[in-house]
Design a protein around this nucleic acid. Structure first.
Lengths: 249, 249
DNA sequence: ATACAAGATGACGTTACGTCAGTTTCAATC
DNA sequence: GATTGAAACTGACGTAACGTCATCTTGTAT
């Protein structure tokens, strides 16, 4: 049993924070002295570490409380949600970044600038942004969205999906070696194996799938990880070689 | 002069927000009616647009207030600061992202996970790199350490790592079908291929590696993501079958 | 004159604590 | 046992940018 001050020494967590965690029921001390001073044990220290870690993942204290309290907690989907949330926040920041960079480019022309100039620039930028948004809305209709929803999602941590992602990623890495390279051909063979295991011989579906894949904008918008067109072309070439050789055997 | 409702119609900014901006002195209405109802003019609408835009750049209302009031405002260095700030925030999110991805890679192994498992994983993650490096130094020599770096790093989302994770995850899924099942044998073949591609024919190293793998404690200390022992045993059995058949051909 | 929409003000809630202020307890020393 | 200084306690207010009531007043059409 150690005092609250000792806890802050060992963990760096402030006294105020510990009292707050006690208050909201996230972490109660193991006990109290007669006079009401908080006392913590090893179990509490371990829990504190967990709380700290989960906080670094961007969870709120309320969420953490639920996690640590509920022994049936669904960690997988919880992490999935958090990942997509974090990625969305990152996307927002990236857009801000590019907007600021654009503004700064405009500013570089005249080193000195006043409010009026800035107002003009801002108006100009607002217009461009609006236009971009309209473009996006025009690009996708309802049918397409339904189709895309049927496809596997990159963030679904399931092993099958993961291997798809990894195989295509490796393909890109080895592109410079040419379509006949043995590593490439081995990857292609694995791709064909998996296609059959997953979809059987449903060629129509496969065709649709790769067609959607070939449109970078569509893929991106749905949260699909993008496959560049050159990788897709490379895969088609390597596939032909693979199928030819197979027939030859 | 238009009413506050009309402003919300035209800009989408809520009544509450407009009143708040009035309150903090960011944007006062052009005038008021006898009864005290706010009235806005064109200048105010323009200013609202500017406020909206600057908000999208991530500035606080206080900062925006300063900008719009100070005609000598130094936009250039202000934007530079904001840019570096945004980039730092993005870096933070990226670190969170990679941590979550790493955790999910570990989770892929066992589809179902409870609080205790999670606590172990968290402890594993809390351990810092130095400790891992020390332990690695004890177990492996210089050449082997280079090879170690080729091994999947749990935190990365790179394709090679993903395939290791996915292959082992699939292996677990198919365990019930027995070691001779064709799917299993195909996965094993792919594992052997990848081993050769990554480490060449350095059999001594491979032996050591799997030994470490088989000891949960050692694996943890080196920072490997955990593989359950039954999956490892299954893999060994399936591997033997695979190698026997290969010799037979 | 009446009714109803629109507007005003004021207050509390939100997150995860930081920062006082005022009071009480602990542990060591005299 | 008394004193004393450090440590701990509770309680309250502040933060950013509003959302969401509740209650009261004004504007306007009929």
């Amino acid at each position: 049993m150690i005092s609250i001050k000792e806890v802050t020494k060992q963990t760096g967590i402030t006294v105020r924070t510990l009292r707050y965690y006690d208050q909201i029921g996230l972490l109660h001390p193991a006990g109290k002295t007669e006079g009401g001073h908080r006392l913590y044990g090893k179990k509490e220290l371990a829990k504190l570490q967990e709380i700290q870690f989960l906080k670094t993942l961007g969870f709120s204290l309320q969420e953490i409380k639920n996690m640590l309290f509920d022994h049936q907690w669904d960690w997988v989907s919880c992490l999935q949600n958090q990942l997509t949330y974090i990625q969305k926040e990152k996307d927002k920041l990236e857009e801000i970044e590019s907007t600021i960079k654009g503004l700064m480019n405009s500013l570089t022309m005249d080193g000195d600038i006043n409010l009026i100039d800035m107002q003009k620039l801002i108006e100009l930028y607002k217009r461009n942004m609006d236009q971009r948004m309209e473009f996006r809305n025009q690009l996708f209709n309802e049918d397409e969205k339904e189709l895309l929803d049927l496809l596997p999602n990159v963030n679904s941590g399931d092993p099958d999906t993961l291997e798809w992602v990894s195989l295509l990623g490796q393909l890109k890495q080895h592109m410079s070696k040419g379509a006949q390279a043995p590593e490439v051909q081995r990857i292609i063979r694995r791709i064909h194996e998996k296609q059959k295991e997953t979809f059987g011989d449903n060629d129509a579906f496969l065709k649709k799938l790769w067609e959607v894949r070939k449109s970078p904008e569509k893929s991106q918008k749905v949260g699909f990880y993008p496959i560049e067109s050159d990788v897709l072309e490379f895969m088609e070439i390597a596939s032909e070689i693979f199928l030819n050789r197979k027939q030859h055997d």
